[in-house]
């Protein structure tokens, strides 16, 4: 039966160890191990590209072990090769939090976020210019990342990273590269509110300022204007959606 055949192929390619019974059902131990190798190599390669610094930090053996365990648990579930590294990261980062140096999980999280920003969908098209009384439109894939270690600084030091809490905005620039930009906590919350796009800019500014016990003074407004102008110039903030008239 084709269904039995397909399940045996799946177990041979993804299982921790191909069983003798499956290899016998499929007919050629040697040749099906070729397939196992082809399938696993392709997946490992794309994951290794996305998480290159993490792989280098923890070593090939630990990295391969994480992939083997992930495959044995029932992945990949995505048809898109570019999403495979994200599936692996979702599985492996909690493991690396327990087993590796404390900054490794931050590094892996940063690398995978950068990968996702780079491969994010097309940007939405705003229906209006940016305005305080409209809902903001951000570029696709913009992420705010709160890190305990400054893993965006390259190269990775031989001694690892010392703690230094950092908030980053990751965005895709006009050359399609992922760029990290440092943010203060208030700016990060504003950007996250704008990404949610369920309030006008004015509403989100008032709410975030209140949450941070910040008065909306001329100095605040000057800093806000700088943040908005910089975000527009970088292509983070694309414009707005006018409220229905």
């Amino acid at each position: 039966m084709l269904a039995d055949h397909a399940k045996a192929m799946q177990r041979v390619c993804f299982g921790a160890e191909p069983s003798k019974a499956d290899l016998e059902l499929l007919g050629s131990r040697e040749r099906w191990l070729v397939y196992r190798d082809l399938v696993r190599t392709r997946l490992s390669n794309v994951i290794g590209v996305a998480l290159a610094r993490t792989k280098s930090a923890i070593g090939d053996e630990a990295f391969s072990r994480a992939i083997d365990e992930w495959l044995a648990t029932g992945s990949p579930r995505t048809r898109y090769l570019r999403y495979v590294p994200s599936e692996l990261a979702e599985f492996a980062i909690p493991i690396w939090q327990r087993t590796e140096a404390p900054w490794v999980a931050d590094l892996a999280g940063y690398e995978i976020a950068a990968w996702e920003v780079r491969h994010a969908p097309r940007n939405p098209t705003p229906s209006a210019e940016f305005a305080f009384d409209s809902k903001p439109v951000l570029a696709a894939g913009v992420k705010v990342l709160r890190l305990a270690y400054p893993v965006q600084n390259e190269p990775t030091p031989n001694t690892g990273y010392a703690p230094d809490p950092t908030i980053l905005c990751l965005y895709r620039d006009k050359n399609h590269r992922t760029i990290p930009r440092k943010l203060n906590p208030l700016a990060a919350d504003l950007l996250e509110a704008w990404r949610a796009a369920d309030q006008t800019v004015a509403e989100s500014v008032q709410q975030v300022a209140a949450a941070h016990h910040a008065q909306i003074t001329p100095v605040f407004i000057e800093k806000l204007s700088t943040l908005i102008a910089d975000s527009i110039q970088r292509g983070i903030l694309l414009g707005g959606h006018s409220p229905p008239s």
Partner: peptide
């Protein structure tokens, strides 16, 4: 055959 049990091989495996 490109997948089984909702998992994708990301390779092209032969049909019988």
């Amino acid at each position: 055959l490109g997948g089984a049990d909702d998992r994708f091989f990301h390779d092209l495996l032969p049909l019988p």
